[in-house]
């Protein structure tokens, strides 16, 4: 009796499916529970990968709940390639639709923050522009130019205090989260991603820069919504964190 990989695969992911016929224990008996070694390897290794990737979610819902949630997730969304270090990009949206955890409304956005931190960690290296490159541009040329940001930079905007929740989840001595939305900018000056909360104007500015708007357009939009927006402060921070890799001027 031959066992196809389709049968093997289906029985691995669905433990209510019986062990394929044609597998033995090497002593003439059906393989039986020996098949569970493979079932267990798949479920445990992928659950552990998700625990490593989403430590704040693990801390917030606890080990038992995480294991159950991950077990369902990995069966509905097995990895699409062998790069396990980035497995779980669908986990935040899975959490959004996952009924048993819907009462914790901020979970999906905290998971998005963790996913963004991980993407930043593995993103391509890029040389940053020298700090004086912005300063030497005349004001008009500056307004018409576009900033290309580092591949490791991420912006996660949320109506929940995700940075405070994330910090608190990983270190219970952190300040308790206040009920206020937080937009988090992730930069990677060297190899360690850093998250910081941006005020609304700065967040809107970075979002527009990421969409490819000119510096002048992005500034106008930010000032329109948040007149207190501090452009110099933000640009200094972006330069200090090696986040600007190119200034494209209009010729």
């Amino acid at each position: 009796m031959s066992v196809s990989q389709t049968q093997f695969h289906d029985a691995l992911l669905d433990s209510s499916t019986s062990v394929p016929i044609g597998l033995s224990d090497g002593r003439g008996q059906p393989a039986g529970a020996r098949f569970s070694v493979y079932r267990n390897n798949v479920a445990v290794s992928l659950t552990e990968a998700l625990e490593v990737s989403f430590p704040a979610i693990l801390s917030l819902i606890g080990h038992e709940n995480f294991k159950k949630t991950a077990g369902l997730f990995l069966r509905q969304h097995p990895p699409k390639n062998p790069m396990i270090m980035v497995y779980g990009d669908e986990f935040p949206s899975f959490l959004e639709d996952f009924e048993p955890l819907q009462h914790i409304a901020y979970l999906p956005d905290v998971a998005r923050l963790e996913q963004a931190l991980r993407e930043s960690y593995h993103a391509a290296d890029a040389d940053a522009v020298a700090p004086n490159e912005l300063a030497i541009l005349p004001q008009e040329a500056l307004a018409a130019s576009k900033l290309i940001l580092a591949p490791s930079l991420r912006l996660v905007r949320s109506r929940w205090p995700i940075h405070a929740i994330w910090s608190y989840a990983l270190d219970r001595s952190s300040a308790k989260p206040k009920n206020q939305g937080q937009d988090v900018l992730i930069t990677r000056p060297a190899y360690d991603p850093e998250g910081r909360v941006l005020p609304p104007g700065a967040s809107l500015f970075v979002a527009n820069i990421l969409e490819g708007k000119t510096l002048g357009d992005a500034y106008e939009k930010a000032m329109h919504d948040a007149p207190e927006f501090d452009l110099t402060g933000l640009l200094t921070m972006l330069l200090d964190t090696s986040s600007i890799i190119e200034i494209q001027t209009q010729d």
């Binding site: 691995l12 990895p79 062998p82």
Partner: peptide, 17 residues
Amino acid sequence: AWSTHDSHFLNDLLPLP
């Protein structure tokens, strides 16, 4: 061994006949 089936990567070294 095999580990991928139908574009699902199963993260284990699975046996073959």
